[in-house]
Amino acid sequence: SELMNSSKLIRMLEEDGWRLVRVTGSAHHFKHPKKPGLVTVPHPKKDLPIGTVKSIQKSAGL
């Protein structure tokens, strides 16, 4: 199965306009000026399962 580095996923979010608002432990929480909701990324993780990545991307509207 495909894995993604959390840094790469965070870069994709930031390029889309998401900004880090809070860190709780290894959970990084992002908000967007125009899009609704809060997106949480486990970080640092070298090997996020593709299912997790897809669900984060979906929440972020990517």
Score class of each variant (00 low, 15 high):
1 S>R: 04
1 S>G: 13
1 S>N: 14
2 E>M: 11
2 E>G: 12
2 E>A: 08
2 E>V: 08
2 E>C: 10
3 L>P: 15
4 M>S: 11
4 M>D: 05
4 M>I: 07
5 N>A: 11
5 N>F: 07
5 N>L: 09
6 S>I: 03
7 S>N: 09
7 S>A: 12
8 K>H: 14
8 K>T: 15
8 K>E: 14
9 L>A: 04
9 L>Y: 02
9 L>R: 01
9 L>F: 03
10 I>R: 02
10 I>H: 02
10 I>K: 02
10 I>P: 00
11 R>C: 11
11 R>L: 10
12 M>V: 09
14 E>G: 06
14 E>D: 06
14 E>H: 09
15 E>F: 08
16 D>R: 04
16 D>S: 06
16 D>F: 06
17 G>L: 03
17 G>P: 00
18 W>E: 00
18 W>C: 00
18 W>T: 00
18 W>G: 00
19 R>Y: 15
19 R>Q: 11
19 R>E: 10
19 R>L: 12
19 R>K: 14
19 R>P: 00
20 L>S: 05
20 L>E: 05
20 L>I: 08
21 V>G: 04
21 V>Q: 06
21 V>I: 11
21 V>R: 05
22 R>P: 01
23 V>L: 06
23 V>D: 07
24 T>Q: 11
24 T>M: 10
24 T>C: 08
25 G>N: 15
27 A>R: 10
27 A>H: 15
27 A>Q: 15
28 H>K: 05
28 H>N: 08
29 H>L: 12
29 H>Q: 14
29 H>C: 08
30 F>R: 00
30 F>Q: 00
30 F>V: 00
30 F>D: 00
31 K>S: 12
31 K>I: 08
31 K>A: 11
31 K>N: 13
31 K>M: 11
31 K>R: 13
32 H>L: 01
32 H>N: 05
32 H>G: 00
32 H>K: 02
33 P>H: 12
33 P>W: 09
33 P>M: 09
34 K>Y: 14
34 K>G: 07
34 K>W: 13
35 K>A: 03
35 K>S: 03
37 G>I: 03
37 G>P: 03
37 G>L: 05
38 L>F: 09
38 L>G: 06
38 L>Q: 08
38 L>K: 08
39 V>M: 04
39 V>F: 01
39 V>L: 06
40 T>I: 10
40 T>W: 15
40 T>E: 10
41 V>E: 00
41 V>D: 00
42 P>E: 06
43 H>P: 02
43 H>K: 02
43 H>D: 04
43 H>I: 02
43 H>A: 03
44 P>C: 04
44 P>K: 04
45 K>N: 10
45 K>G: 06
45 K>I: 11
45 K>L: 07
45 K>V: 15
45 K>H: 07
45 K>Q: 10
46 K>L: 10
46 K>H: 14
47 D>Q: 15
47 D>A: 14
47 D>H: 14
47 D>M: 11
48 L>H: 01
48 L>E: 02
49 P>I: 03
49 P>S: 15
50 I>Q: 13
50 I>M: 11
51 G>H: 12
51 G>L: 09
52 T>I: 12
52 T>Q: 10
53 V>S: 04
53 V>Y: 04
54 K>A: 12
54 K>F: 05
54 K>Y: 06
55 S>Q: 14
56 I>F: 01
56 I>A: 02
56 I>M: 01
56 I>G: 01
57 Q>C: 12
57 Q>L: 15
57 Q>T: 13
58 K>T: 11
58 K>M: 10
58 K>I: 14
59 S>K: 15
60 A>C: 02
60 A>Q: 02
60 A>H: 02
60 A>L: 05
61 G>W: 04
61 G>Y: 04
61 G>L: 05
61 G>D: 05
61 G>S: 06
62 L>Q: 03
